[in-house]
């Protein structure tokens, strides 16, 4: 059974990755794709590493906490957690099931919740506002559906990556 990781990047995207490791070879599965990543070690430059992704070499550096890939792409891990293995749950379900979770993209305080449990929401509809640095950020629905659960109350402080509510 592979390990399942939940990885949030700095802009609040969630990636659910199923990982099987054999030495320096990693087989990483997402809902629709598989990535064979092999760690090859040091690159030609100081502080550079090389990984092969599906047979293609990629150069990796780190700058200010950001991963710089091939000098042209940036990626930052904000939070990474290992999913507790669930009895009987199929891998596909684990990879798929989380897309309705609305996570907080920043640290702040919930000021206004515009929906309640059981509401039908459209994609892009404003769900709630989070105040940070005296300014309000509106969180909108990532997909259409029914609000299954609201995890926060107005006035509550939230951290980046916290699950605010769940849409099904």
């Amino acid at each position: 059974m592979p390990k399942v990781y939940r990885l949030y990047n700095d802009v609040g995207d969630l990636f659910t990755l199923a990982v099987e490791t054999k030495g320096d070879k990693y087989e990483i599965k997402t809902e629709n794709n598989t990535y064979e990543v092999e760690f090859k070690g040091r690159g030609t430059k100081e502080w550079e590493s090389v990984v092969m992704v599906n047979g293609r070499p990629r150069r990796v550096e780190v700058d200010q906490g950001y991963l710089i890939i091939d000098g042209s792409e940036v990626f930052r891990i904000d939070r990474l957690s290992e999913e507790a293995p669930k009895e009987g749950a199929a891998l596909e379900e684990l990879l798929k099931g989380k897309e309705g979770e609305v996570v907080s993209p920043l640290q702040g305080r919930v000021v206004q919740i515009r929906v309640k449990e059981g509401d039908a929401v459209n994609k892009g509809q404003p769900l709630l506002s989070i105040e940070a640095m005296k300014s309000e950020t509106v969180i909108s629905a990532p997909k259409a559906g029914i609000v299954k659960k609201v995890n926060v109350k107005p006035g509550q402080g939230v951290r980046k990556g916290d699950v605010l509510l769940i849409i099904e």
Partner: peptide
């Protein structure tokens, strides 16, 4: 989507290999 996922996959491996924690001289 594939580009993003590939980055996440590389980041996970980089994390696993301790590249993100390594202090840059």
């Amino acid at each position: 989507k594939r580009w993003e996922e590939e980055r996440a996959a590389i980041a996970l491996v980089a994390y696993n290999k301790g590249l993100l924690k390594r202090k840059v001289e």
